[in-house]
Design a protein around this nucleic acid. Structure first.
Lengths: 157, 157
DNA sequence: ACTTATCGTTATGCCCCATAACAAACGGGA
DNA sequence: TCCCGTTTGTTATGGGGCATAACGATAAGT
């Protein structure tokens, strides 16, 4: 493709309106920005509660899967077990979860929400729902479903 | 007391198939996974070249916008000027870009690709195109366009 | 009993993002 | 001219998320 070479056509000193075309049609670029917007929206609602998206994910999965083991939980959250360890240590420190040895397998940990954890989870869920609403506010239900399907296909490829 | 018996009905010892429903319909969750997949695909192709998505973005924008100033470039890339500084210092160290004072404004920097930078950019563009192809391989052109539009609306909300 | 595999932990490093504090240079007004 | 506020870029620091390697402890297979 012929490239319009600008040899000396720098008449204007500095372009005040940069050419954005190189990034404008890149999936990777817009995925980054959209994910960033998502994180920001979540952070606004979750931050005051002392939560992050990662921490909320743990609480959500723990409520639906009591006594789950760490390896399985890490797999479900798509994070590494080594990173989950740190996350869980902080959550336990904050009194939101409890770690006990699994019966008959002293090396495995049994994870469970505490009452405080369940209470905070309810607030977190509300904040998360609000963030989700903000994100999808410009999309029709059909568009949102299509977006979700496309994201899933990309993530699972 | 003797035994912390499990009060609730824990008939099944440990669920081998966790309940994934809490995260399954969350935009934020799938945005994270899709963005991660995108980053991984880019990283595979760009890593051997000594590039990252962020570095490639700079090179792409610099080719389309020679002599752009840092503040404008940072705005176009949606990154903070302070982070751009570090990125540019490394790129200059690697001989991929050149920073010169803007004529008539000694505090502003003029950014420009070097020959080496332009050469590496061509390789990076090829790797990026391949990554983009992998990501969109499960999507029809119409689906890809719809995805892009939805991401833009989320990012700009 | 010895070896191998599982489960979790620790340590380290990278990428991306954000804020605050700062120096240097410009520009306008008293 | 001098002062002051603004622009431009830099430095330092911290946080979230991701990945790998090395390790101790336990369990399971032979």
């Amino acid at each position: 493709m012929a490239q319009p070479r600008r040899l000396s056509a720098d008449a204007r000193p500095v372009p005040e309106q940069p050419d954005l075309s190189p990034l404008d049609d890149k999936l990777g670029f817009w995925l980054r920005l959209a994910q960033q917007a998502s994180f920001d929206a979540l952070h606004r609602g979750l931050g005051p509660l002392g939560l992050t998206p990662g921490r909320l994910g743990v609480l959500l999965m723990l409520e639906a899967n009591p006594d789950i083991r760490q390896a399985l939980l890490a797999e479900a959250l798509h994070i590494k077990p080594s990173n989950l360890t740190v996350l869980l240590a902080a959550l336990e420190q904050d009194g939101l979860i409890r770690r006990t040895e699994e019966e008959g397998n002293r090396r495995a940990n049994c994870l469970r929400l505490t009452a405080a954890g369940r209470a905070l989870l309810r607030q977190g869920e509300a904040a998360e729902a609000e963030a989700e609403r903000q994100l999808a506010q410009g999309l029709s239900p059909a568009e949102r479903a299509a977006l979700l399907a496309a994201l899933r296909r990309i993530a699972e490829a």
